[in-house]
Design a protein around this nucleic acid. Sequence first.
DNA 1: GTACCCCCTTCGACCTACTTGAAGGCAACC
DNA 2: GGTTGCCTTCAAGTAGGTCGAAGGGGGTAC
Lengths: 140, 140
Amino acid sequence: MSYTIHEVAQKLGISTYSIRYYHDHGMLPNVKRDANNNRVFNDVDLEGLHIILCLRGTGMPVERIQHYLDLVQQGECTVPERYEMMQAQQERTLREIADLKNHLSTINFKVDHYAEIMKTHQPDSFVPASMRDTATNQTA
Amino acid sequence: MSYTIHEVAQKLGISTYSIRYYHDHGMLPNVKRDANNNRVFNDVDLEGLHIILCLRGTGMPVERIQHYLDLVQQGECTVPERYEMMQAQQERTLREIADLKNHLSTINFKVDHYAEIMKTHQPDSFVPASMRDTATNQTA
DNA sequence: GTACCCCCTTCGACCTACTTGAAGGCAACC
DNA sequence: GGTTGCCTTCAAGTAGGTCGAAGGGGGTAC
């Protein structure tokens, strides 16, 4: 199967801009061109993009992704380095999930707090936005 | 208690640059200055920074954070809007955690895969980086 | 009292990872 | 054969910092 850049963008839920960016930066080295110089993607390229999105989504810089994909191209002798990279990324991602969960509990607290305030007030005690430019009290 | 920008940076594990950035962009409106024009932070400012880091860390754009902090300044009548903002952020964060977990399982798979390869090969079948510029086979 | 050191200031440049716009090519339809 | 539409490249813009230069104030050392 082969795909246009638009089809790939739709399939993966990203912009054509990003795809060109990844391609232009050497992260999709096997993408072919048709007679009109348009990019033509196959399933292997899609797989590559999937990995790129996974690594970018977990915060790996583009340069590191380039390096990783180079290692893949170089063959099995680079497995130990790839292993280390993926292990580092694994740890990084676990930390990030933990951080997000921490942040989430702060946010949850605010949601509950605001819900509580709204429950104990009459609905009409809230002033519309257009009238609240002179208020001064502070309730974070 | 009052703190210098350095103390705050160390306390919160961020750079003084970022703190100035947040301050310069109106997100710490109550920070005072001393006789030498140096920023002086108190515990309320620290609390504010904590919220800023929580919202930035969960992907809220600076502009939205500014708006949220404005609402806080405006007082209790803005609680319904703040409630909506925090609820949206809650959902966003849950989605982000789910995405990260998906990515993580891809990464876990790679780690296991590479570990498997390394276990079934002799240790000396891996060529040092300095010698592997001519390899061609592909094993993602 | 001045030299040195350290921390602070502002302002502007730089960075990453896109995102968008301008200008133009090629094909297909009417 | 003109218009529509998707593609191209290259350059500029954006967000959110990050950093460096230039300069000021204050405290201690001599």
